[in-house]
Structures are given as structure tokens and as C-alpha cells.
């Protein structure tokens, strides 16, 4: 089951690398949130209690409802164009993503011989981190960078759940809250940027240099 979710997670990453619509990016965030919630719920099947529900519920509220809605609102308010502008051709981006995923899976496989890890969730989480970084580096719009950051965070979450032990609940909750506030602050900053700078390209942010 665990592996199935991870593979679905990887598919969402592939979709992320071929699509050129902003809305699709937001759906990917939603899908990843749902997958992570389901994964947490499956984890707690054996030892069910109210406490085990807190984390999945918070995760669901933040990653599936609040954050995507907030990003949609920003896009709507600021009238951002609904296409993704890339500094790289779509096809080469896909190739890059596929290549790095292959490398990550291969390396995780060879690493798993020394330490016991679940290869598929581990490698999917790590791919998500790397692809999030690619999105930040190779796509142009600032709002897309925020989405890239969120994909990275999702990857870390999946990756953390691939470990054989549980991270303490308080820390997970704190991390979620942090992410939410970061996105919130980034949203405010984006609002301000759009009212002070004319466009939304990263090329606009060139005032500060040595």
C-alpha cells in the first residue's frame, strides 16, 4: 500500500514536469496532500486512537484546503497569466527530471543494502525534493517558485515517513505550521511585489547586486 501511494506520488511529479498550466500545478499540490494524508491514515490502522488522527487532519486542512486555496486566490487577485514560463524547453525539462529520478532510484537501491529503508517511498520523497528544486531554479514566475518549495516540503514529508521510526507529533505539527506561515508570508510579499514592481518575472528582481 505504502509503495502504491509513493508511485502515485511519483506520477504526480511527472505530471508536474510536463504540464504548462498553473492550475495543474495547484492540482498536483492537492493530490500530493491527499496522498500524504492517506498514507498517514494507513500508518495508524493498527493502533487507532484520537491522537493519531490529529496529524492527518491538520495535514489535510493545510496542504489540501488552505494552501492551494490561498495560492489560487493570489493568482486570481494578481491576474497572473495561467501559463508556466520556463527557461528551458519542456522536453528537456522532462528528460532532466526522468534522468535524476532514475539516478535517485538507482542510488537508493544500492544504499538500501547497508541500511534498512523502504526504497520506493524513500526515493520518491527524494525525487520530489530534487524536482522541487528544479522547479525553483528553472521556472520563471515567483508564484511557481512557491509551489516548487511546497513540492519540496511534500517530498521531505514522504521521505520522513519512509523512515522506520516515527518523528514526534509535536515536531511534525510545528513543521506544518511553519510551512503554512512561510507560504502566508510569501503570499503577502507577492502581493506587495506585484504592486511595486510591474511584472511577475524573476527578471524583475534584479535591483540588489554587488
Amino acid at each position: 500500500m505504502f509503495n502504491l501511494f509513493s508511485i502515485l506520488f511519483c506520477l504526480s511529479l511527472l505530471y508536474l514536469s510536463v504540464t504548462s498550466r498553473l492550475n495543474a500545478y495547484i492540482s498536483v499540490l492537492r493530490i500530493q496532500g491527499i496522498l500524504l494524508t492517506l498514507l498517514l491514515l494507513f500508518h495508524s490502522i493498527g493502533h487507532f486512537s484520537v491522537l493519531t488522527l490529529i496529524l492527518p487532519l491538520t495535514l489535510f486542512t493545510i496542504k489540501v484546503i488552505l494552501v492551494p486555496r490561498y495560492i489560487k486566490k493570489i493568482i486570481f487577485d494578481l491576474e497572473i497569466k495561467r501559463t508556466i514560463e520556463s527557461s528551458m524547453r519542456q522536453f528537456s525539462f522532462l528528460l532532466l527530471v526522468l534522468f535524476s529520478m532514475a539516478v535517485i532510484f538507482f542510488v537508493s537501491n544500492s544504499l538500501s543494502k547497508s541500511v534498512k529503508i523502504d526504497i520506493i517511498p524513500f526515493a520518491s520523497g527524494f525525487s520530489s525534493v530534487v524536482i522541487g528544486l528544479f522547479v525553483i531554479m528553472l521556472r520563471k514566475k515567483l508564484i511557481v517558485h512557491v509551489i516548487g518549495f511546497l513540492v519540496m516540503e511534500n517530498g521531505i514529508f514522504l521521505f520522513g515517513s519512509a523512515l522506520s521510526f516515527k518523528i514526534p507529533l509535536m515536531i511534525e505539527l510545528g513543521a506544518l505550521l511553519d510551512v503554512f506561515v512561510v507560504v502566508f508570508l510569501m503570499g503577502i510579499a507577492l502581493n506587495k511585489i506585484s504592486s511595486t514592481f510591474s511584472g511577475f518575472d524573476i527578471t524583475e528582481l534584479r535591483r540588489l547586486k554587488d
Binding site: 519540496m152 510579499a189 511585489i193 535591483r207
Partner: peptide, 18 residues
Amino acid sequence: ESLEAMWKYLFIASVGVA
């Protein structure tokens, strides 16, 4: 300038901490 500095710091530090 300060807006750009804040954005960059917030973003890069968050990615770094991640």
C-alpha cells in the same frame, strides 16, 4: 529594495532550512 531582500531571504533561508 527591502521588499526584494525580504523575499530572497525568506525564500532562500526556507529552502536552506528544508
